[in-house]
C-alpha cells in the first residue's frame, strides 16, 4: 500500500534522508523508532507530501506522491495524520474540528459530518465533550479528538508522529488504547514512537532509523529478540532500561 524506493532528501546541502526503501502492506502496523533528529518525522511527512523530496519515489495505493501531476490535497485526505502536539484548531469546538475537512474536502453535508463526528467521538470515548473547546480538554483527550478528526475522512492509512510524547505519563495509555483498537480493526498504520511496549504488542514490523537511513527493518519479534545492527541494539538497551 505504501512503497518507498531509494528516498533521499536534503535541506539545502544537509542530507536528512538517505536512500530509504521499505514497503508497507495493507493492514500492517509499522513502528518507526530511532534517536532524535534521525529523520523519522521527515520520513512520514514525505509519505503524504507535506515535505518535498529530491530523490527516489513514494507511492501510496498506486499513486506517486512526488509526481507533480498528483492531486496532493486529494491524496492527503485519504491518509490520516496525528501530530505530537495534537494541532487541534483552538477556535473551533471538538465537533467543529472533526467536521472541517469532512465539509470542505469531502463535501459532506453538515448533518452527515456531524453524525460521523459523534460516532467517532463515541469510539474514542469523548461523545459528551462534543461541544467543548480543545483548550478545556486534557492532553490525552485532545489527542483522542485528533485521532477522531483524522478517522473522520475514512483514511486508507494513518500516520502517527510521536502521538504520546507530549503527554503526561498517566494519559499515555488512553491514547495507546485507542491506537491499539484501531490496529485490531485492520487499519494500516505507521507510528513513530518510543513506546516500546506498544511496539511489541501491536506492531508487525519495526523500522529503526539513524542519521536519515533505515538501519533496521525487521519483524517485531526479531527486532526485540536480536537487532542486527549495533546501533539499534544500543538504542534499545538505552530505551528499555529507562
Amino acid at each position: 500500500m505504501i512503497t518507498l524506493e531509494h528516498l533521499s532528501k536534503w535541506y539545502g546541502s544537509t542530507q536528512v534522508l538517505d536512500d530509504c526503501s521499505t514497503q508497507i502492506e495493507k493492514g500492517e502496523v509499522v513502528v518507526i523508532c530511532g534517536p532524535s533528529g534521525s529523520g523519522k518525522s521527515t520520513l512520514i511527512k514525505c509519505v503524504n507530501g507535506l515535505e518535498p523530496f529530491q530523490k527516489g519515489t513514494i507511492s501510496v495505493d498506486g499513486i506517486s506522491v512526488g509526481d507533480p501531476a498528483t492531486n496532493l490535497p486529494k491524496l492527503r485526505s485519504r491518509i490520516g495524520m496525528v501530530f505530537q502536539s495534537f494541532e487541534l484548531y483552538p477556535h473551533m469546538s471538538v465537533v467543529g474540528n472533526i467536521c472541517l475537512a469532512q465539509l470542505h474536502v469531502l463535501k459532506r453535508s453538515e448533518d452527515a459530518a456531524r453524525a460521523r463526528a459523534l460516532e467517532l467521538l463515541d469510539r474514542v470515548g469523548l461523545r459528551s465533550h462534543a461541544d467543548r473547546f480543545p483548550s478545556t480538554l486534557s492532553g490525552g483527550q485532545q489527542q483522542r479528538v485528533a485521532i477522531a478528526r483524522a478517522l473522520a475522512l475514512d483514511p486508507i492509512a494513518m500516520l502517527f508522529d510521536e502521538p504520546t510524547s507530549a503527554l503526561d505519563p498517566e494519559m499515555i495509555n488512553e491514547v495507546l488504547d485507542v491506537m491499539t483498537e484501531l490496529a485490531k480493526d485492520g487499519m494500516t498504520m505507521v507510528v513513530v514512537t518510543h513506546e516500546m511496549g506498544f511496539a511489541r504488542r501491536v506492531a508487525d514490523r519495526v523500522l529503526f532509523m539513524d542519521a536519515g537511513a533505515i538501519v533496521e527493518d525487521a519483524k517485531t519479534a526479531a527486532f526485540f529478540d536480536k537487532p542486527v545492527s549495533e546501533r539499534a541494539a544500543r538504542f534499545l538497551s538505552k530505551i528499555l532500561h529507562h
Binding site: N48, L50, P73, K74, L75, R76, S77, R78, I79, G80, M81, F83, S85, E87, L88, Y89, L100, A101, H104, V105, L106, A146, R149, A150, L153
Partner: peptide, 11 residues
C-alpha cells in the same frame, strides 16, 4: 503545525 494539520487533512 496548524497549517500542517490542515494540509494533512486535504485542505
Amino acid at each position: 503545525g496548524q497549517v500542517m494539520a490542515g494540509l494533512a487533512s486535504g485542505l
